[in-house]
């Protein structure tokens, strides 16, 4: 059995530092397996947030060799084990301890976004919708809320604009409602003025790290930007509104 070194961020606040742990590794292991093995044998009190270990719950987000990933879906054979593998908590959120961060901001902001609002039923008293019309919002609803997209978003990570910008995760949350044929809510003004969708300069970092492969920028953010432009900046549309 081979041994690899895992360089894990341990501690709380200023007291934090990397600690190297040797760990035996086997074929097929993922990073979370190694972390669990280290936790069970060498670091019983290590803080790790995880649940399903199957890529479905989005709890075990971390930065592995600097790349934001789910620990449960990162195979060791995708990493260079001849060097220490660094594992750090996400950087865009306040640190709690070891690999765990405080992601409550995401929950608080989401709560402020106007929720799904059911449109009136059709003529037959039911709500029909066709598969081709729901394919797009269904793509966004694949989101497992791992917040890796928030973690890499420059607006949040580098510019700390959490007060003004809701980030890619919550933009696709808005998109799945705006594009749901059963919803008749309107969040365009909020997108422009409160969520500041304009801050996104479409570098697509969020899309690159999405473990669900959601086309966050192309399919959600850009179309939402277009809707905002059409609604508030299109001169023809403005004229039309005046005369309506």
């Amino acid at each position: 059995m081979a041994t690899a070194t895992f360089r894990i961020w341990r501690g709380e606040g200023e007291q934090s530092a990397y600690v190297d742990y040797p760990c035996e590794v086997e074929e097929g292991m993922v990073v979370l397996d190694a972390v669990h093995r280290i936790q069970a044998t060498q670091a019983n009190d290590m803080a790790v947030r995880w649940n399903c270990k199957a890529g479905k719950c989005g709890s075990c987000s971390a930065e592995i060799n600097g790349m934001p990933k789910l620990m449960c879906m990162t195979r060791l054979n995708s990493l260079d084990l001849s060097k220490p593998v660094t594992i750090e908590p996400m950087k865009a959120f306040p640190h709690i301890k070891d690999l765990v961060t405080d992601v409550s901001w995401n929950y608080e902001v989401k709560k402020q976004i106007p929720p799904f609002h059911l449109r009136p039923p059709g003529a037959d008293g039911t709500w029909r919708a066709y598969q081709k019309d729901v394919d797009r919002p269904q793509e966004f609803r694949k989101c497992i809320e791992c917040f890796l997209c928030q973690d890499v978003c420059h607006v949040l990570r580098d510019h700390h604009m959490h007060e003004k910008f809701i980030g890619p995760r919550l933009l696709i949350h808005v998109a799945q409602m705006e594009m749901n044929p059963l919803d008749d809510g309107n969040r365009l003004e909020a997108l422009k003025d409160e969520y500041n969708i304009g801050y996104c300069n479409i570098t697509k970092c969020c899309t690159k790290v999405c473990p669900e492969g959601i086309h966050i920028t192309d399919n959600a953010i850009i179309p939402l930007k277009e809707r905002v432009v059409d609604e508030f900046y299109d001169p023809l549309h403005k004229l039309f509104k005046i005369f309506k």
């Binding site: 919708a129 609803r141 919803d183």
Partner: peptide
């Protein structure tokens, strides 16, 4: 659930599959 925003897969006539 559908009335609270869930989006189930659809039948060809637009109902829940």
């Amino acid at each position: 659930l559908e009335q609270w925003g869930a989006i189930f897969d659809r039948t060809p006539d637009g109902r829940i599959l």
